[in-house]
């Protein structure tokens, strides 16, 4: 069978589908001071997943927490990678209490594209990954 670390090189998705892969990728991002991008990506997925079984109040609290931590501060690594229109859409949703499971989808896509085009290829060439293999 293909060893996991070879699968990680197939796509960002295969990497993020493996606990050890996530762990190593996060270590790399931490070194590059952009681990927040990965945390944000998972927070968006988690937010969407929780919708079915969580009450509205919890969803609102969570949406606010994600907004405050990753988007509000314009100098944050995540905030800098998200388009202004996407940020104001999310801000509007939070301010008007329009909480929707898909409200972070666009922002998540933008961060994912950024990782696919930038940090993921760098990770595959990094010492952290090469030493692991």
């Amino acid at each position: 069978p293909t060893p996991p670390y070879l699968k990680w090189a197939e796509s960002l998705h295969s990497l993020l589908d493996d606990q050890d892969g996530i762990h190593l990728f996060r270590n790399f991002l931490k070194q590059e001071e952009c681990a927040d991008m990965l945390d944000f990506w998972f927070a968006c997925s988690g937010f969407r997943k929780q919708e079915a079984n969580e009450g509205n109040e919890k969803m609102l609290k969570l949406a606010k927490a994600i907004y405050k931590k990753y988007i509000l501060d314009n100098n944050g690594i995540v905030s800098r990678q998200i388009k202004p229109a996407t940020k104001s859409f999310i801000k509007d949703c939070v301010m008007k209490l329009h909480i929707d499971p898909a409200m972070f989808d666009q922002a998540q896509t933008e961060i994912q594209t950024m990782m696919e085009e930038n940090t993921y290829p760098l990770f595959l060439k990094s010492d952290i990954y090469l030493e692991y293999t």
């Binding site: 606990q19 998972f42 927070a43 997943k49 929780q50 609290k61 969570l62």
Partner: peptide, 20 residues
């Protein structure tokens, strides 16, 4: 503040793949 961080952490963990 703590509970907000906990909520966020719980949300992030819920999206991670489970150990195989």
């Amino acid at each position: 503040i703590d509970s907000e961080d906990d909520l966020l952490q719980e949300c992030i963990s819920s999206a991670m793949p489970k150990k195989k």
